[in-house]
Simulated assay, not measured.
Amino acid sequence: MKFRTEVDIPGYPFRIDHRSPVLMMGSCFTDYMGSYLHKYLFDVCINPFGVIYNPLSIHKALTAILDKEEYTEDDLELYNDLYFSFNHYTGFSHPDKHKALENINRSFKEARRFIHDAHYLFLTFGTSYVYRYNKSGEIVCNCHKMPASAFSRERLTPEMITDALTGLFNRLQQVNRHLKIIFTISPVRHWKDGAHGNQVSKSILLLAVNRLCSFNPESFFYFPSYEMMMDDLRDYRFYAEDLIHLNNVAVTYIWEKFASAFFTDETRQVIEKLDSLLKAFQHKPVHPDSITHKKFVREREKRLTGLKSNYPYLPWSKFNN
């Protein structure tokens, strides 16, 4: 007897390994998966503009990566003594405009490098609702705690999303003809839209992604993280205390499905070895001066040296021990 509906993940005609640069952009679900890739020493760039929730702001960010050299003071706004960009998440804001630009451009330059070298671009859409800044008419990535009266709220249609992104994706593949794009819909609910509004919003995203994937099935793919949460892990014990975001159990479950779907056998073996070593470094001894612990430390260093020798292509400078 079955007590849950496990989601079938489609087979993908490619596999990702540690030699595959990956660019990830979108909602906070991108951070969930990206943090695992970073932890296990993949060549990954995660949300270079910070968290972006809607497809048209992702479109704007990718267009900037293709066309813009760098951000300047003209791209900044000032509110509540903070300089910020409407194209970026609040984490880039700073009281010093030079520091704000420095942070923005450091991340932006990394994104410009990745757009040419990346083998895979993961895009996670969170909502089809957007906010338009009344003064300029531009759709913003984040309202930066400005008054609600400064913005107009709109809901995109599937056609608006696909029409905007189709031309952009053609440009991306001219710049990087090997690039494959994998879409996901964030399973994080936007409860401020209301129960019905959230469902309508997610449905629009699903329709748009389905249409995009049909345009270029050899290069555009879909990973069903949304369905895993809604139809497989459909229980509040898999949510955080706010009952909206995923908890660690849910994130780990989806990560394991992600790894099984996309990684080579060798890559999964490397991850297992790295995970074991990371746990060894996180071990906190009760008696650090004991002979037993000193032996443990020597064995741990020996394992690290062995892994560095066996996998010299990994970015060991990022190993968080």
Results as ranks from 00 to 15, higher is better:
M1I: 13
M1V: 10
M1C: 08
K2A: 15
F3P: 06
V7R: 02
D8A: 15
P10R: 10
Y12L: 11
F14E: 15
S20W: 10
G26P: 01
F29K: 05
G34V: 04
L37Q: 03
L41N: 03
V44M: 10
C45T: 07
Y53M: 07
Y53R: 06
N54G: 06
N54F: 03
K60R: 09
L62M: 11
L66F: 04
E70N: 10
E70T: 08
E70V: 07
E73Y: 15
D75Y: 05
L76T: 00
E77P: 04
Y79K: 05
D81S: 15
D81V: 05
S85E: 00
T90H: 08
T90M: 15
S93V: 02
P95I: 12
A100Q: 01
L101F: 02
N103C: 12
S107A: 11
A111H: 08
R113L: 13
R113S: 13
R113H: 11
I115H: 00
I115D: 00
H116Y: 10
D117I: 12
L121R: 03
F125D: 01
Y129F: 14
V130S: 01
Y131E: 01
N142V: 04
N142L: 05
S149K: 14
M160G: 06
D163T: 11
D163W: 08
D163G: 06
G167V: 05
G167W: 05
F169H: 01
L172E: 01
Q173I: 11
R177K: 14
H178Y: 14
K180C: 08
K180N: 08
P187K: 09
V188H: 03
K192G: 05
A195C: 10
A195H: 13
H196E: 13
N198D: 06
L205F: 04
L205S: 02
R211F: 04
R211D: 08
N216D: 12
P217V: 08
E218A: 15
P224N: 09
S225W: 01
M230T: 11
D242Y: 05
H245I: 03
N248Q: 15
V249S: 09
V249N: 13
A250N: 00
Y253L: 04
A261L: 11
D265R: 09
T267M: 11
R268V: 02
S276A: 12
A280N: 10
Q282R: 08
H287L: 10
P288E: 12
F296S: 03
L304Q: 06
L307G: 03
N310Y: 13
Y311F: 14
W316T: 10
K318D: 09
